[in-house]
Design a binder for these strands. Sequence first.
DNA 1: GACAGTAGCGCAATAATGTAACAGAAATCG
DNA 2: CGATTTCTGTTACATTATTGCGCTACTGTC
Lengths: 145, 145
Amino acid sequence: MTIAEERCNKDGARFTDLRRKVFEILLMQGRPMGAYAILEQLRDAGLSSQPPVAYRALEFLIAHDLAHKVERLNAFVACVNPGQTHAPAFMICRLCDGVAETHAEPARGALGATARAAGFQIEKTMVEAIGVCPSCVDVKERPDQ
Amino acid sequence: MTIAEERCNKDGARFTDLRRKVFEILLMQGRPMGAYAILEQLRDAGLSSQPPVAYRALEFLIAHDLAHKVERLNAFVACVNPGQTHAPAFMICRLCDGVAETHAEPARGALGATARAAGFQIEKTMVEAIGVCPSCVDVKERPDQ
DNA sequence: GACAGTAGCGCAATAATGTAACAGAAATCG
DNA sequence: CGATTTCTGTTACATTATTGCGCTACTGTC
């Protein structure tokens, strides 16, 4: 994995220790993490743990398509295939808050047509599906929203 | 508009003064509003203005498809055609934060297929497109995220 | 109408998430 | 090396959201 980031690094971006560390934390977790959970890990690693530290690193990772923000959870995940600019979509389990990343381009279909008709210039789309993941199908319900 | 809510009311839901007021505020504004902006309006109207008041009313409105949450903005909008259960999609202007609601069903296409293949049961989808609205096309840029 | 049960509201406190602003360190480039 | 930019550390604060509890008001049954 670290290999892929180095490669992405080559577009003039500085993949510093701090940013690498945050990326590693996200990879290690394999699940969405809140910014403050990341800060805890940074503290444990002896690094600075003030909020801006995490948010800046995350901003960088997101800008370089190494990570994504899951808006629904206010949380962050490592991207499954880093470096490639893409339109990610997420399937979010409302029972375990697990997330699976896939790909979707709603702007290509009806939404794109609507946007063009309205004169709206789409730059980026966010798709998040809420539901129940395979591991949770036979688990007790949770009230949800 | 108030007519439509009364009708939706008939599914056993109690459309109380408070909930009506919050809905009116959203309609009046015609734009996404933060919960605390709503609370200000409530205070001006002489009603209680503690956070839970707004969040509970919003939860109700959302549950009955009278309003939606725009996750990207952590804000709330009145639904354009209340009462009908649907899969809303939003086009969010990153310059003026204005929002246009439309309709999208990503679960019908590739995303649905992926979900089925993965055994993920989609219950609800969120689609939010970020871009520039017609009124802002010739306005100075803003750094965005 | 009396009663029990439930849903809604008021309120206090606090949790969780996210930013602004500024100073110092470190890389980059002439 | 010096100038410039980028990155980091830190303080302080802003914004968004929730928990818990007790009271009120409506609903339905007898």
